[in-house]
Design a protein around this nucleic acid. Structure first.
Length: 596
RNA sequence: GGGGCCGUAGCUCAGUUUGGUUAGAGCACUCGACUGUCACUCGAGAGGUCGCGGGUUCGAGCCCCGUCGGCCCCGCCA
């Protein structure tokens, strides 16, 4: 790191940056009063800035009685201007828990330059004291952001942003900004709409992603593009979902899937290094979507632990066993996971796991224990003496099986698998298991209506081997689409795009978008593709999620300076809020009564 | 749209099971004492629309209905 001077006209050093090497220097500091200790004659203030804490001592002999009195009376979180001398602390008075704990400032003067009200929520907190309720922390965000944890998170976020820019810029990618006021897209998530004042009845939309713009930049010849793009989606929120969020948006021309994956993987490796978290050596493994669904029941498998899904349909096929018979007869399968050491799960825990399965849609979870090579109970009776081997159960293993169609059992097995891993603490600490999931299907098919929708987005190129399937069985066609998954969380995804306007039209047709609709919604893209489009593709990463993972946070709110609540409210600034009638008139908007 | 948990002093919580005198504790705050503390210590004090509205009851922080807000999850998020 380069040595930056934080000295200004009003201070010589940062509080938290003082060390033994500064001993003897006369310093002037500005900072927040973190905590005060008034011993009567002596007064100690812990002074805080973004670099950390430093102890300032006030002795009547050096600072004078007035300065001591002022130091004793200044309220927590006030900003003070202190002058003094850096002194080495006697051995017995050092504080090993402070990075500045070998020194203190012997103050000669103090001024209160920013007096503070008693803080609504505490900033300085004792070791065992609870954090204030998140509602209050969001309401008084300026105070909450003073806490060490959030300071560190936002400083990490800054470093990750800079590292991303440097990595991509060094790799020849150009940072190009795209509009925030853009065109509504009926596909995908709900748009945030912005009314136009000069065009009555017409609206802009905030972008869900810069997808079409970045493709047009490829058409324009900008080869390699990136953007730390703000995106907006008006959908219900979760701990890992905010209505506005930041994507690392990347697109490149004359590339294949492997080219995109190579760059993206190297970028992730760089960011994990910046975040100080281990990134596995060598190439990130790849798994097909079909494989992920078969072995883990999801398209974003957590590979920190085993518990792979096994198909035991054959063991039950010729057996009269009510739990499985109807499912098999209906063309379903019997699948489940085998848990080494699963015998330690209590009856109550197994009932809870059963409830997890049921809430995910299966009729129940079959529990099978192998003890001394023998499977007891109804399953043992039905399958016979070799039940354990037919189910692949090692001695002492517990099998949890469900029966039915894959589309039901996959999500159930996924949840059961995660639930068991959590109970048995199977995911090792500090381990990062990355995996590229590739060969996603082109489409999702609604079973009732038979309509197709794009799995990734409607500009995704079909897999060259599956183009022939588009005509008669498009729902079996794979796409050139890929996701990067870490420990069961999707970090980002992308695809090779369609660069041939004819292909794009045929995909629109499959999605039920007729020529006229395609023209009105995506005309500018189609026109671009007709103007000579290079083969291109890209990827987008959820930057906030990456920051969250690397900060060790459990909520996106802890890595965003001013986040929204789960109801998409901003408690600090109070948005959204009603506006004056006149403002609405200008926008040609009349409200229906919202009073009710 | 649905399910779950939560809302009592500035903050964190107890009190709600089984309705009953004046709603408690720790921290913070105010005042006082204290010259080596570092979550300083000690003494005293102040501080409450029990989220809000309605209902049941002789009586509601506690029971019922509604509502607002926060968090977690399902649906949703091309």
């Amino acid at each position: 790191m380069t040595d930056i001077s934080f000295a200004t006209s009003l201070r010589t050093h940062q509080c938290g940056a003082l060390r033994v090497e500064h001993v003897g220097r006369t310093v002037r500091l500005g900072g927040w009063v973190h905590r005060a200790r008034d011993l009567g004659g002596l007064v100690f203030l812990d002074l805080r800035d973004r670099a950390g804490l430093v102890q300032v001592s006030f002795d009547p002999a050096t600072a004078g009685a007035d300065a001591c009195a002022l130091a004793a009376s200044v309220g927590a979180e006030s900003v003070v201007d202190v002058e003094g001398v850096v002194a080495e602390r006697p051995a017995a008075m050092r504080n090993k828990e402070m990075s500045t704990g070998d020194v203190e400032i012997r103050a000669t003067s103090i001024r209160v330059v920013g007096p503070a009200d008693t803080p609504a929520i505490p900033v300085a907190r004792g070791r065992s004291e609870q954090l204030a309720a998140e509602e209050l922390r969001l309401k008084h965000r300026h105070l909450d952001l003073r806490r060490d944890e959030l300071q560190r998170n936002l400083m990490l976020r800054h470093r990750l942003l800079q590292r991303t820019r440097r990595f991509l810029s060094d790799a020849g990618f150009l940072e190009i900004e795209t509009p925030v006021l853009t065109k509504p897209t009926p596909e995908g998530a709900r748009d945030y709409l912005v009314p136009s004042r000069v065009h009555p009845g017409e609206f802009y939309a905030l972008p869900q992603s810069p997808q079409i713009y970045k493709q047009l930049l490829m058409v324009s010849g900008f080869d390699r593009y990136f953007q730390l793009a703000r995106c907006f989606r008006d959908e219900d929120l979760r701990a890992d979902r905010q209505p506005e969020f930041t994507q690392i948006d990347v697109e490149a021309s004359f590339v294949t899937q492997d080219d995109v994956i190579d760059v993206a993987e190297e970028m992730m490796r760089t960011l994990w290094q910046e975040g100080g978290s281990p990134f596995p050596a060598g190439r990130v493994r790849r798994m097909t979507y079909a494989d992920a669904m078969e072995r883990y029941g999801v398209d974003r498998p957590d590979l920190r632990y085993g518990l792979e899904i096994a198909d035991v349909t054959e063991a039950f096929r010729a057996v009269e066993f009510p739990f499985t018979a109807t499912a098999i007869a209906a063309g379903g399968r019997v699948r489940g996971i085998r848990i080494p050491g699963g015998a330690s799960l209590s009856r109550k825990q197994l009932d809870e796991i059963d409830a997890v399965g049921k809430s995910a849609g299966v009729r129940g979870v079959l529990r099978v224990k192998s003890v001394n090579g023998v499977v007891e109970g109804a399953v043992g009776k039905a399958l016979g003496d070799d039940a354990a081997s037919r189910l692949g159960l090692q001695d002492g293993e517990l099998g949890l099986f469900v029966a039915g169609e894959d589309r039901i059992t996959n999500p159930a097995l996924d949840r059961i698998r995660q639930d068991v891993a959590l109970r048995l603490q199977l995911a090792p600490e500090g381990v990062n298991e990355f995996v590229w999931v590739v060969d996603f299907p082109m489409f999702e098919r609604d079973l009732e209506s038979g309509t197709l929708s794009a799995m990734h987005h409607p500009f995704t190129s079909p897999h060259p081997d599956d183009v022939g399937r588009l005509k008669n069985e498009p729902w079996t066609a794979r796409a050139l689409a890929y996701d990067l998954v870490l420990n069961g969380t999707e970090l980002g995804g992308g695809s090779i795009r369609i660069s041939d306007p004819t292909v794009q039209r045929s995909i629109f047709a499959l999605l039920g978008i007729d020529e006229e609709t395609a023209q009105s919604r995506f005309g500018f893209l189609l026109e671009g593709l007709r103007a000579g489009a290079p083969p291109h593709g890209g990827i987008a990463f959820g930057f906030d999620r990456i920051a969250m993972v690397l900060a060790g946070a459990t909520s996106l709110r802890d890595v965003i300076a001013f986040p929204k609540t789960t109801a998409a409210r901003a408690l600090f600034e109070g948005a959204p809020s009603p506006v004056a009638d006149g403002d609405l008139e200008d926008l040609h908007i009349t409200l229906e009564s919202v009073a009710e």
